[in-house]
């Protein structure tokens, strides 16, 4: 006789399988819809869409390169700023901070994550940009003005401002994921280092960070995913000019921003289709970044793991 639970087990198994498949199906569905919505533009421009820089809706010329560039560069700036800050914060919170200071900081970081991005954008326009324009930007120009990255006139709204606002937005997620990862490092690892006469910094380096590096990498990738798709706040401070300029003081434009800005103005079919294709590109880049990260994680992992799991 079959045990009474076998029917329930079957239902459970198929139900969870269906749920899991639904998630996969959803991803494909989104991709397919985007591709379908942009089929006209894809046929019309082909590969040129990705490789040209003219974005002229009146002349019906659409090239996405400035947006791809803008998304890539602003996300990179965001990571360069946010990763060291977030990981250092996470290390401080898990390894060094006394309990009375730990909880307030954690709450504040969580609050930062809860700020609507349009509010952050407003703050960016009225507080951050004037300040950047008056103090850090001229300073950067003075020191690094000889490089092409800090050469051009300072307007305030710029690629750099966009990157900074994205950094603020991805800081909480990278910090809290990193904190969880560091917390999951077994105490036994720390004790091993302490017992060898390691100082706190040495313990953090040899026992904590090296143990957690894979997980921290994952946290960074999660942040990158957010950065690539970040829309509202960036749109408000990046300047929205489709151009490719080496100078980080020059205004830029991102894939997400152009969709948000121009969707309502897309009066012709081709214009709308071009915006759909922008969406498809963004979708593709996000998925590609994640796949690449997983690949990297695997090769990184295999050097550590080769027989690690008992």
């Amino acid at each position: 006789m079959a045990p009474p639970s076998s029917f329930g087990d079957k239902v459970f198994k198929w139900l969870t399988l269906a749920m899991a498949l639904a998630v996969v199906a959803l991803v494909f569905l989104v991709g397919w819809q985007l591709a379908r919505g942009s089929s006209l533009a894809i046929r019309r421009f082909g590969f040129h869409f990705l490789a040209t820089s003219t974005w002229d809706p009146v002349a019906e010329q659409f090239g996405a390169l400035p947006f791809i560039y803008g998304t890539a560069v602003s996300s990179l700036i965001a990571l360069i700023i946010a990763v060291p800050l977030s990981i250092a914060t996470a290390v401080y919170l898990t390894e060094l901070a006394p309990p009375w200071i730990r909880q307030p900081i954690i709450s504040l970081i969580e609050m930062l994550a809860a700020i609507p991005s349009v509010i952050l954008g407003l703050w960016g326009i009225f507080v951050m940009i004037p300040w950047l324009r008056d103090h850090p930007f001229p300073f950067l120009k003075k020191i690094f003005g000889w490089t092409p990255f800090f050469r051009e006139p300072i307007y305030g709204v710029s690629m750099l401002a966009g990157g900074i606002i994205i950094a603020v937005m991805i800081l909480p997620i990278i910090t809290s994921v990193s904190r969880e990862i560091l917390r999951s490092v077994p105490n036994l690892q720390r004790e091993a280092a302490y017992a060898l006469g390691a100082t706190r910094w040495e313990v953090t380096r040899i026992a904590v960070l090296s143990y957690a590096k894979k997980g921290l990498f994952g946290a960074v990738i999660l942040g990158l995913g957010r950065a690539l798709g970040e829309t509202m706040a960036v749109t408000m401070v990046i300047g929205n000019t489709p151009q490719i300029r080496a100078s980080l003081f020059a205004p830029g434009y991102t894939l997400a921003s152009v969709i948000a800005n121009e969707f309502t103005e897309a009066t012709t079919d081709l214009y709308l289709q071009a915006l759909f294709e922008i969406g498809l590109v963004l979708f593709g880049i996000t998925i590609l970044a994640n796949l690449l990260a997983q690949l990297l994680l695997k090769t990184l992992g295999s050097t550590i793991k080769s027989g690690a799991v008992q």
Partner: peptide, 21 residues
């Protein structure tokens, strides 16, 4: 205490080699 622990070593209940080394 760092100096003390350099002179007085310790072995733990569960083996804890550093996994990345």
């Amino acid at each position: 205490p760092v100096v003390i622990r350099r002179r007085i070593g310790m072995v733990f209940q569960k083996s804890n080699p550093f996994p990345t080394m």
